[in-house]
Design a protein around this nucleic acid. Sequence first.
DNA 1: AATGAAAGGCGCGACAC
DNA 2: GTGTCGCGCCTTTCATT
Lengths: 152, 152
Amino acid sequence: MGMDAIDRKLVELLQADATLPIAELASRVNLSQTPCWKRVQRLKEEGVIRAQVALCDARKLGVGTTVFVAVRTNQHTEEWARQFVQAVRDIPEVVETYRMSGETDYLLRIVVSDIDDYDRVYKQLIRAVPLFDVSSSFAMEQIKYSTALPVR
Amino acid sequence: MGMDAIDRKLVELLQADATLPIAELASRVNLSQTPCWKRVQRLKEEGVIRAQVALCDARKLGVGTTVFVAVRTNQHTEEWARQFVQAVRDIPEVVETYRMSGETDYLLRIVVSDIDDYDRVYKQLIRAVPLFDVSSSFAMEQIKYSTALPVR
DNA sequence: AATGAAAGGCGCGACAC
DNA sequence: GTGTCGCGCCTTTCATT
């Protein structure tokens, strides 16, 4: 699965705009359409490119508020973890979840319309799975949000 | 900019897979192609759908490690903020940045290949702008990552 | 605001070089 | 790797209700 400079450039371009036609991509990497198309095809087959999605405006969808939730548990069991993972996957307002090192066991990013809406999601979460400690931090402003991963 | 149930369904579908052809979308929302196409067009014009991008596999791009960085400053000036925003926007490894309420002033999500790589980005960041306090937390595992916002 | 038909463009894949 | 070609699907528009 060796990616050369051209592959990386294609990934960079498609991460920025997946609507670029093959002809446009080809000229940007100084290739003709056929080899360019084959490269993109290969990147998809290999799973380097794993999806093509529409990104929406959070405010316009009424979920302009981001809350980070640090979670601690006192039940370090397989069963609890399985339940927790299921719970966050089932709640669409939870858009990101990470198992952390250090003090907090899990870090969640949640998008909601306002504080009342957050309370609703919070209750939904603690009802689904017992949590030892929950610490919520509100984001005042989203400074940067990029789905484009660095390719060097 | 009133979104009805059909619009929301379209947004939901396109957030999951933007390669769905109009004909397929149309049948899923029980419309024919033309009105379905017009709705999607309108959602793009209004900026509800703001981009269409390729999502990549972080591991396969060699950036499988996520680090959350909590930043505190002691210079609460316009000029410092401007510099900081520019710095995080210019560093591609910084994929998300939020201005927070509470203890930490800013929270960054950074993707890197390993700890050494993180050290490189860390040095790049503190060289670009003076930081009063920096606290790094490593993610052990990404449990959930969704670019799809909830639409209810 | 909906439908069905039709035109034009582009992705896709095969071919020779 | 490059260029060419053709099929078919998909986007986009038009006429109509």
